[in-house]
Design a protein around this nucleic acid. Structure first.
Lengths: 174, 174
DNA sequence: TCAAGATACGGAGACAGTCTCCAGTTGTCA
DNA sequence: TGACAACTGGAGACTGTCTCCGTATCTTGA
């Protein structure tokens, strides 16, 4: 990839992250202006709004997953901490959560989705958590998706924390 | 409301329900043709796609909530049965769930959202379930929303059932 | 260092979906 | 049954999406 192309791509993703995080409603073409490039460049790098969102999503997920395992904690603590950290991250970036949950297809095909799911699966396996028919990882993903996509509920932050605690209680009881 | 207006409104909602359920991707204008009315009529009744989705949503939710309480069951059983029934309903109408979850704003303002949430709150209160700071109803709503909006996951049905069981386990343990 | 070729850029304009507006029609009420 | 209010339908304006290609920039090899 040519150096200028890489630079432009990065600029677009950074601008988009910013737009999403501040919950701005922007025409797709305007993302180009925001990043200081032409529309053609925008479309070449990201054929659809979803593709752009997926790129932002991947970056966010990577940041979270990179610190999923902490040598100072037990495997069980890692898992609990990851889920709680996920919620706190969204509390700090609600707009990002809402936009990404709305635009990124949850059917796991994006790199970010795969990364997140495999991290959850890994943490659960290490913590010795496995429910019945192996659907437990998916169940966790569903709850996380629910949290990300309901950020505009008035009491969302405390409700999300409650949802995670209920989920953890259910998992540890099983 | 004049009789013909009522008739047209109902025809539009019925057509939309059908379109959503079969996951058809349709331009908004085409909903009018499908219902046998003109675009003007469609827009007068439903200014936006979201307004139309909300009307469909309301109908679906009403159908579910009307049978929420069964004299032959205990209050606790009513609640468990409601959540499980909710999932089974979505399993039978995945397209409807996906579309409505994507289009209807979860910030509770629609009649359907209010109806669903108050039903859940009522069932939980009767079952004697109340977690900590009152966020438990919201937590349940978040999980239900997660289920409705992830219907295209490959193993979604079993994962959704698992999510509900984990939620119930968590709630009953508390 | 400097061609020559490959790759990327930008934005004008075609295209598609959304929404408005109003002349004509239909229902309602006295 | 007449008069009026309410509703209808669809042509066309409007707005956002996306493509296309002439121009500019980078990279590589001599």
């Amino acid at each position: 990839m040519r150096a200028d192309a890489r630079r432009n791509r990065d600029a677009i993703v950074a601008a988009a992250r910013d737009v999403f995080d501040h919950d701005e409603q922007l025409r797709f073409d305007d993302f180009a202006a925001r990043a200081g490039v032409g529309v053609g460049t925008l479309y070449r790098h990201f054929p659809t709004r979803e593709a752009l969102a997926a790129a932002v999503y991947e970056g966010e997920v990577a940041a979270l997953c990179d610190q999923a395992r902490d040598p100072a904690r037990s495997a069980g603590e890692d898992f609990d901490a990851f889920l709680r950290g996920f919620v706190e991250y969204l509390v700090a970036h609600a707009g990002l959560g809402r936009t990404l949950a709305a635009v990124v297809d949850p059917a796991v095909l994006s790199d970010g989705g795969i990364r997140l799911e495999s991290t959850v699966a890994d943490l659960m396996a290490r913590a010795g958590i496995h429910v019945a028919d192996g659907a437990s990882v998916g169940a966790v993903m569903i709850v996380l998706h629910g949290i990300g996509s309901t950020t505009d509920r008035p009491l969302w932050a405390s409700e999300s924390r409650a949802a995670v605690e209920l989920l953890l209680a259910g998992l540890h009881r099983a």
